[in-house]
């Protein structure tokens, strides 16, 4: 029998992980909701940005917060670059081609990372203690990552609801032609969307850097779960993605303690498949 304290600890860690997963899922979901394209390589962009953070901090000796900001800048740049070079030409292609173009990017990023930086795991070392709360140990970096990811999500929410350009991003996903009649170039709004998606990837990269080491297959490890969360929450549904992130991360964390990490993922994916059948539109579909 497992000591319940471990389960509680796993649950707390699950919530922490959920924050960062939610960030990833929201970025991907934003892009999907507006452009109607699934960026299969989205988490591989995170991987590249994590390398950026690693090099800035560990090799060039930047302070961690500045390195993290550097990661965000890299994320934005990647988002824009991918948009202009790959997404723009395939906006009107059939969905298979869209999946494959970003899938090709996945191979490209994985292997160029292998080529440039080898398959070694590289980690940003931050010497921060674990903190103890009533017998439960929570790692400090995870707590920071969690708090920051919640803050960034609040920021994203305010951006999308309060600003002109944020509202325009939501509007263009509902009626591209009408938005043009409002004087907004849909192409420009798309680029901004991809840039914001890239920024989310960059923030996630910075926050993941302090908890995980990076390697070329980082995207392959976190990518599928991110897609599952998006679909589970309802593609394009931000609130749903937020909730789904925590459901999935809890399953993975607790499953990991009770069985093994892989089984945690297997259960999460199995739940995803079952949920797809029970609620094809996502967990919040009925409220819509």
């Amino acid at each position: 029998m497992i000591d319940p304290i471990f389960l509680v600890e796993a649950a707390v860690n699950g919530i922490m992980l959920g924050g960062v997963l939610a960030l990833l899922a929201l970025g991907l979901n934003l892009i999907f909701g507006v452009l109607d394209i699934v960026w299969i390589a989205y988490v591989d962009l995170v991987m590249v940005a994590m390398y950026a953070v690693y090099f800035l901090v560990m090799v060039y000796g930047w302070p961690i917060w500045l390195g993290g900001l550097g990661g965000v800048v890299v994320g934005v740049a990647l988002g824009i670059l991918v948009h202009l070079l790959i997404i723009t030409p395939i906006l009107d292609s059939p969905p298979v081609n869209q999946l494959l173009a970003t899938g090709g990017l996945l191979f490209f990023l994985q292997s160029i990372a292998t080529f440039l930086w080898s398959t070694d795991h590289k980690s940003v070392r931050v010497s921060l203690p674990s903190i103890e709360l009533g017998g439960i140990f929570v790692s400090y970096p995870r707590l920071i990552a969690f708090v920051l990811s919640i803050l960034v999500m609040v920021g994203l929410y305010l951006f999308l609801t309060r600003t002109f350009i944020g509202t325009a991003i939501r509007a263009v996903s509902q009626d591209r032609g009408a938005m043009a009649l409002m004087g907004a170039s849909p192409q420009k709004i798309y680029v901004v969307t991809s840039a914001v998606g890239g920024a989310m990837a960059g923030v996630a990269a910075a926050l993941l850097s302090i908890q995980y080491s990076v390697h070329p297959y980082f995207g392959a490890a976190f990518g599928p779960i991110t897609f599952m969360i998006c679909v589970l929450g309802g593609l394009g549904n931000m609130v749903g993605a937020f909730i789904a992130s925590f459901v999935m991360s809890e399953i993975i964390a607790i499953g990991g303690v009770v069985w093994s990490t892989e089984m945690g993922y297997v259960i999460a994916f199995a739940l995803f498949i079952v949920m797809m059948f029970a609620r094809p539109g996502g967990i919040l579909a009925k409220r819509q």
Partner: peptide, 19 residues
């Protein structure tokens, strides 16, 4: 009409003033 159905009335008006 081509309104943005999921945006609120206020947000639709706001989009009118996008320029």
């Amino acid at each position: 009409r081509r309104l943005f159905p999921k945006l609120t009335v206020a947000e639709n008006l706001k989009m009118g003033a996008f320029l």
